[in-house]
Design a protein around this nucleic acid. Sequence first.
DNA 1: ACAAAAGTGTTCTCGATACACCCATGC
DNA 2: GCATGGGTGTATCGAGAACACTTTTGT
Lengths: 225, 225
Amino acid sequence: MQHCYDYPRPAVTTDIVVFTLRNERLSVLLIRRARDPYAGYWALPGGFVEPDETLERGALRELQEETGLTQVYLEQLYTFGEPQRDPRGRVISVAYLALAPLEALQPVAASDAAALDWFEAEHLPEMAFDHRDILALARARLRAKLNYSTLAFKLLPETFTFHELQRVYEIVGEQELDKRNFRKFIRSLNVLQETGETRRNGAHKPALLYRLAGSAVIYHDRQGT
Amino acid sequence: MQHCYDYPRPAVTTDIVVFTLRNERLSVLLIRRARDPYAGYWALPGGFVEPDETLERGALRELQEETGLTQVYLEQLYTFGEPQRDPRGRVISVAYLALAPLEALQPVAASDAAALDWFEAEHLPEMAFDHRDILALARARLRAKLNYSTLAFKLLPETFTFHELQRVYEIVGEQELDKRNFRKFIRSLNVLQETGETRRNGAHKPALLYRLAGSAVIYHDRQGT
DNA sequence: ACAAAAGTGTTCTCGATACACCCATGC
DNA sequence: GCATGGGTGTATCGAGAACACTTTTGT
């Protein structure tokens, strides 16, 4: 069945940049394209928006279908609409930024593993369409928002140590931070709850575990550096 | 002639929030809708994206066609895609934020004056679709960006006095600022050029006129408060 | 006892804020 | 000469940055 309109319409897709921390590296989930155009290249997960879903629902659905992921934090990034960005015709893509702790992302193994992989943001493969640009923007946005929001917590599981949180800021921000200043900074945000639990890692003093108070991303004005 | 596709496609439009300062008030340009849906309501200028133009070009073209405006600063704001936002069917709108000094906007008079008007951001009429939400977001974005960019200058003509610049920050930020601190703040950005000219306004000391060095919006980290 | 990570305070610098007076002009 | 807006400097406060040692645990 064909769908006909009086004027030409672009196709609308979502593309999702899923970031997580893996082996102490900022990493992105990519899918290897089996078909032309760009067969063999790697691409962001995503796909066409359906008639009755919001853009955000569409992004979540595609992510679920293509990667098995669910339970990720999602926010709109930017809309890419260069007429020539897809050789098949006019495709406008609403890009989303997604964040999740690696633990929440094990379902990745449930999908076709050959076609799905994590890549370090510093070592990207050849990418399809303008996906490298989208990724670069997502990374810049994430980095910028660390400094005035609690976005970093979305890369951690529900409970975490102070050191793990600091590593998020260090890895994403690409600079080492002073332990005492960092703790002072985080405490000044008043968003941490002690869980009372501790975690033993090795032959060391056990670390206190914390939890974020509330699940909303909070915006503040201080710098996290 | 009909355009047919294998899957249904949404229509894609741009909507433009044009801000300017008028009578010391932040104001928006709106168009009165002649036809249903929302006949008689006011709406943001905008319209369908054509097959061979970028989203930004489409926004500029619609602005030109509907309001006669050209030479505005434009940046992408957000993409609105609720399935029910337009009663005629699925319409996804890429919203743009536009800024310009009132002087650059006189062409407004060239259009159908009955259907076009400026409204104070504080006193909006009944608006069509989700345009009130779009406008609210645009305003929040503008206000936030004042504090870490040179966006405010886009609301001023090429040359301006220090006091005019301060008024932009005060009106958009909705708070009065100290004259000396404000000058110190602006100077620390190192983006001002003296023109050497002065402007006489009334029975007062003439004010020095400045110009922004370069036309690009610059991002900084200091606060403008 | 020692190796390794957890945890804690103080000092300094610099940007943000508060605040009051003289200057140039038109009438 | 006076009313009006244009223009300038200093003192205080607080956040950001630099910096070193003690504590707890496993082996």
